[in-house]
Amino acid sequence: NADAEILGLPDIVIQIFLGTGIAMILATCMIGQLATQVNASHCMIDYINNYFALFTLYVAMTIEFTGIMHSSYLIQNILAALSGKPIQSNEEPRTPFQMAFFYGRVLLSLAILCFALAVTFEALWAGNTTMWEGVPRVVSLILFFGLMSVVGMLEGMQIAFFAVAKLPASERGNSFFAKKTCNLLFKGNGQNLPGFMIGRQLTVVSCFFVVARVTTLNIEDNEPNVFGVTDSSQAFLNTGLHAAVITTILASITWQLAASAFPLAFLANPATYILLVIALTLEATGVCAGAWV
């Protein structure tokens, strides 16, 4: 609440940190994400040597089994076909029943994704989201696609950077921006790669906070439900799970799969170099240095 009084701080300070969400962004980055990533990178085995890690794995596998995100596998297959790279797997070939079950979940996932997008666009155009007042709907729509693309690029860059990290310099591409990106990323003692990870995380969380405002529904009791659904269905949509489906598939998994299939194409993209510079600049400010404590 930007109107709250905290520690006697001036209103302008409270407005900046609470009203804009900067305080929550920094707390989420340092406490909820970067701190655990730093610990896991240094204590890999110890980090998973507990029952909570096992529980988290089972929950993730259960969610994957439901097929909600299976449309990402379809994208993976399409990208593999485009790149001419067969998907390597240690699993046995699927039986006809397993194939039908798999693609049935793919169709289910596509239907859920399309419905989630339809709900978001309908609510956004009707002004029934938590987007800041005064922001035109067209601007909100542009922000939605723009920030989703930025997040997707950053997700893909992470995959592409690790894919080329062990390649000799001669195999990292010959384009102008591929060379500039690699020279900046791998120069010196290699500290720019973990530095990018920190700056990337801060940028991703910042983008997601805005995207969350665009996709989160805000239906008043006296207003009609989206597409005329029942009150119980509207209450379910108000939880924001439809937004989680959209962002996970379209702003994360899709771009990661694209980067894994075409890592050199990501390096040659001018946007990759620009986002790398932005991420390193944010990391250099030290705003997330608390994650190393």
Score class of each variant (00 low, 15 high):
204 V>D: 04
221 D>P: 03
235 A>Q: 14
265 A>K: 05
260 S>G: 15
243 A>L: 01
277 V>W: 09
211 V>D: 12
77 N>K: 11
23 A>Q: 05
191 Q>G: 15
64 E>A: 01
165 A>S: 12
108 L>S: 04
170 S>A: 12
229 V>G: 07
280 L>E: 03
248 T>M: 13
283 E>K: 03
9 L>E: 01
73 Y>A: 06
14 I>T: 15
130 T>Q: 15
135 V>Q: 11
210 V>F: 04
106 V>F: 01
151 V>G: 07
215 T>I: 14
123 A>C: 01
17 F>G: 00
10 P>Y: 09
43 C>Q: 04
285 T>C: 07
51 Y>T: 13
198 I>C: 07
62 T>R: 00
259 A>P: 14
132 W>M: 07
192 N>P: 01
188 G>Y: 08
245 V>T: 04
125 W>G: 10
262 F>N: 00
234 Q>F: 07
85 K>A: 07
290 G>M: 10
6 I>H: 04
112 I>P: 03
31 I>P: 03
148 M>P: 07
28 T>Y: 00
99 M>I: 04
52 F>E: 02
228 G>C: 01
283 E>F: 09
256 Q>W: 05
222 N>F: 06
131 M>D: 11
103 Y>H: 14
286 G>T: 06
82 L>R: 04
13 V>Y: 15
49 N>M: 02
190 G>R: 05
207 C>S: 02
209 F>A: 14
107 L>H: 01
170 S>F: 08
16 I>W: 05
197 M>K: 10
247 T>A: 03
37 Q>R: 01
58 Y>G: 00
83 S>T: 09
25 I>E: 05
292 W>T: 13
98 Q>E: 12
182 C>W: 01
47 Y>M: 00
263 P>V: 05
55 F>L: 07
172 R>A: 01
151 V>D: 10
245 V>N: 05
42 H>G: 05
164 V>D: 11
185 L>I: 12
140 S>C: 15
208 F>D: 13
151 V>I: 13
29 C>E: 07
129 T>Q: 11
77 N>S: 11
258 A>S: 14
191 Q>P: 12
167 L>S: 14
202 L>G: 07
99 M>Q: 13
196 F>E: 02
259 A>S: 08
145 F>D: 00
199 G>M: 12
42 H>L: 08
234 Q>S: 12
288 C>K: 06
191 Q>V: 15
181 T>M: 02
41 S>V: 01
111 A>K: 02
236 F>P: 01
178 A>L: 02
23 A>M: 10
243 A>P: 06
44 M>Y: 07
125 W>I: 15
15 Q>Y: 11
182 C>D: 07
110 L>P: 00
222 N>Y: 05
209 F>K: 09
74 L>V: 00
88 Q>W: 05
279 A>C: 13
9 L>V: 05
